[in-house]
Structures are given as C-alpha cells and as structure tokens.
Amino acid sequence: MSLSWIRFRNRHLLTINFSLAAALVLYGIRRDFAWHLLLVVWLLLALRFERMAKFQQLLLVRVGRINSTLILTLFYFLFFAPYGLLYRCFFRKPAFQQRASTFEEKRKIGSFDRPF
C-alpha cells in the first residue's frame, strides 16, 4: 500500500464516504436532489479544512454512540431478555438459586494456554 494512498485514506476517505452515504439517504428520503447542493458544499469544506473533517468525525462518533445504544437496546429486549427466561428455566447457575450451601467443588486448574 503506497504512502500516498494511506495519507489520502486517513484524511479524505471518511469524508467522501460520508457524503456518498448521505447522498443516498437524502435521495431515499426526498426522492430528488434538492438538498444535494448543500452536501456538495459540506464535502468541499471537509476536504479543504481539516477542522471541518474533525468535526465530521466527532459527529459520526456521536451518531455511532447513539446507534450502538439503539442496537444494543433492541438486541436486549428482542433477543436477550426472552433468552433470559430460557436461561432461568433450564440453564440457571446454581449460585443464583437458593441452596443450603454455596461451596462449589473445584478439583483442577484449566490450561494456561487459553483465555478460558
């Protein structure tokens, strides 16, 4: 990979991709190109001024965080919580249940070679 590509990628690729994606979304919403001029202006500014590109990155981080929260929340209620019912019925850890003793026998140590 050439150095100039790496530099280009780090500095501009996100901007270009962002504009492309935004263009697609805008078209999808509006079904026309009325607002795309604004997008072109944004693209040019971000390509020209590093501060603009940084702001764009921060914006995406923000969006990313909101996105993650939404995705995880959906995942939690759609998959995880129902699975929790299954867990509590069939696979529940003894430690979470009422017992007369909480001692758990342990006779050997696992291998050092793996993270489990």
Binding site: Y76, Y83, Y87
Partner: peptide, 13 residues
C-alpha cells in the same frame, strides 16, 4: 445479565 433480564439494561449497555 440473563439472570437479571429484563431489568438491568443500563448495566448491560
């Protein structure tokens, strides 16, 4: 988390 669900969303997140 499975044990705590459907509560405990904040901790999960």
């Amino acid at each position: 988390h499975l044990e705590a669900s459907p509560f405990g969303l904040r901790s999960f997140l």
